[in-house]
């Protein structure tokens, strides 16, 4: 695989909702390419006819819970960690109709 470029890293960061400072871009890029080239080792494994494993479990199907109303967390507890709230709403900066 061709090594990733600065613009690739910026694109991945945008997808991951992370900001990368231009001053650290070179270092991030070289670390990233070094780790990726190590994981390329996987390419040499022969996986013909091999099924992927998502996770290891003795269950053969997804266990479903009963469709029954049960008590859930108290609202006050749910909101206690919110950085900003109004009553029982998470308060966020304006989303629509904003000037850029």
């Amino acid at each position: 695989m061709t090594p990733l470029t600065k613009s690739d890293i910026k694109k991945i960061a945008r997808l991951a909702q992370l900001e990368i400072d231009d001053s650290e871009l070179d270092q991030k890029l070289s670390e990233f390419n070094r780790i990726l080239s190590f994981t390329e080792k996987l390419a040499s494994a022969n996986v013909d006819q091999i099924k992927p494993t998502q996770f290891v479990s003795e269950e053969t199907k997804t266990p479903l819970s009963e469709d029954k109303v049960k008590p859930s967390l108290d609202q006050e507890l749910v909101f206690q960690n919110a950085p900003d709230r109004q009553d029982f709403f998470f308060k966020v900066p304006r989303m629509i109709g904003e000037e850029k």
Binding site: T39, L42, A43, A45, V47, I50, K51, P52
Partner: peptide
């Protein structure tokens, strides 16, 4: 190339 392949190697 990466994720699916790694899941297969996991089986191995």
């Amino acid at each position: 190339t990466f994720y699916l392949k790694a899941q297969k190697v996991r089986s191995l």
